[in-house]
Design a protein around this nucleic acid. Structure first.
Ligand SMILES: [Mn+2]
Ligand SMILES: [Mn+2]
Ligand SMILES: [Zn+2]
Ligand SMILES: [Zn+2]
Lengths: 145, 145
DNA sequence: ATTCTTATTGAAAAATATTTTCAATAAGGA
DNA sequence: TCCTTATTGAAAATATTTTTCAATAAGAAT
């Protein structure tokens, strides 16, 4: 099910601003801020309001179609989200982000922490950052072992 | 080594605003925003400027004495950080946060992801959220299994 | 204790970011 | 083509964060 079907399913409309925001995110390999998305939409001669960018991001986040990426400073950048449980891996040099499957098993971690703290854990935020293949090549970076 | 020694070591001064910010964070069991910290400092009759709260949080974060906590909406809340590698576990009801040791071994996770993506991973952001023991008791919450 | 140096403070202003309001518009069903 | 109403966007209101700079006070030196 693509995003348009998802909207229909929810009784929401497929509008121009929503199309543009999705399109801009599809183009980009890096997470984008609302301002960045707006700027790019103007550059593409698609005149939409900044307010709509905000509203669209909220909506799409709600629907699980985009995800917010948390950084050292900036936590207001968004990427398109694949359906399912995924996390992001962000390049510290160029900012490019890729998803990795959430097939990870954190339960072995969780159990002792739940026991120790008495908390019941039901959500997690997991993100990795490092250097992407391109940037490794470009900067001659290699693992310090 | 306590925070005052740490500041000295860096040639930084132990000032009134810094004392107050640390003190407010020590009182609180939950992560606090700059505004919240400022409000509490005023309530405690410790008149410091909001600007100093911002500057102090930046500084202390830099020094690893406080950490920023990322939430669904709010990502500008800070908690005191123990020295070493820790992560946070936040209660979705009352907001209380506890640290858990970073002794977790993510390397078994990392290896396949590095292989698959070509990234070299060197940092991670990990946070859990759930329900704390007090809120479980208070709300009659219990694990749905 | 007094003086000196300069890191730090805080008021104010500026810059940014986000939300609210509401009349006008357009999406999509009838 | 018409109708209903979800959605848009300009403008204003709010909120957040940063910059500036003269005044202050931390802490070393004397
Ligand atoms: Mn996961
Ligand atoms: Mn860790
Ligand atoms: Zn964040
Ligand atoms: Zn890169």
């Amino acid at each position: 099910m693509d995003w348009q079907e998802k909207l229909n399913q929810e009784g929401l409309r497929v509008t121009h601003p929503r199309r543009v925001v999705i399109s801009v995110l599809e183009q980009s390999g890096t997470p984008l801020s609302p301002q960045a998305i707006h700027r790019r939409s103007l550059e593409a001669k698609e005149e939409i309001g900044l307010v709509s960018v905000y509203r669209t991001l909220d909506l799409l986040t709600e629907l699980g179609l985009v995800r917010r990426v948390h950084g050292q400073n900036e936590c207001q950048c968004y990427v398109l989200a694949s359906p399912g449980h995924y996390h992001h891996l962000v390049c510290q040099h160029c900012g490019s982000a890729v998803e990795f499957s959430g097939m990870e098993d954190l339960s072995s971690l969780l159990a002792p922490i739940e026991l120790e703290t008495g908390f019941t854990i039901n959500e997690h935020l997991l993100q990795f950052s490092g250097v992407c293949p391109e940037c490794q090549r470009r900067t001659g970076y290699h693992d310090q072992e």
